[in-house]
């Protein structure tokens, strides 16, 4: 049986979704049942899940809400031209 400290340490050092299936089960059980660290660690898992979705969207959609301003584009182009 895992201790709270082991669960917290695992979540500090890993992203939940990258753990092996058996590690996930152990963590999940502990988090669901533990009155001491369950809530705090569940919220970490929630946030990591959100980040995973965010990264997946970043990977899939290549969104570009931030765009290069014309002057930034020009500065970079200039530097690249200087090097050729």
């Amino acid at each position: 049986m895992l201790t709270c400290k082991q669960v917290s340490k695992t979540l500090a050092e890993n992203r939940y979704y990258e753990l092996s299936w058996s590690q996930k089960v152990g963590l999940f059980m502990h988090i669901r049942l533990c009155a001491v660290c369950g809530k705090a660690n569940q919220q970490i898992v929630d946030l990591q899940t959100g980040i995973r979705k965010f990264l997946a969207r970043e990977e899939k959609e290549h969104f570009t809400e931030v765009k290069l301003k014309p002057e930034e584009r020009e500065r970079i182009r200039q530097r690249m031209n200087d090097k050729t």
Binding site: C4, S8, V36, C37, K39, A40, N41, Q43, D46
Partner: peptide, 19 residues
């Protein structure tokens, strides 16, 4: 326990749904 806060405030929205 390796945590700082035993009882952090609940999410103000449902994270699974929002994600």
């Amino acid at each position: 326990f390796g945590i700082h806060d035993q009882n952090p405030p609940d999410w103000k929205f449902d994270p699974q749904n929002a994600f």
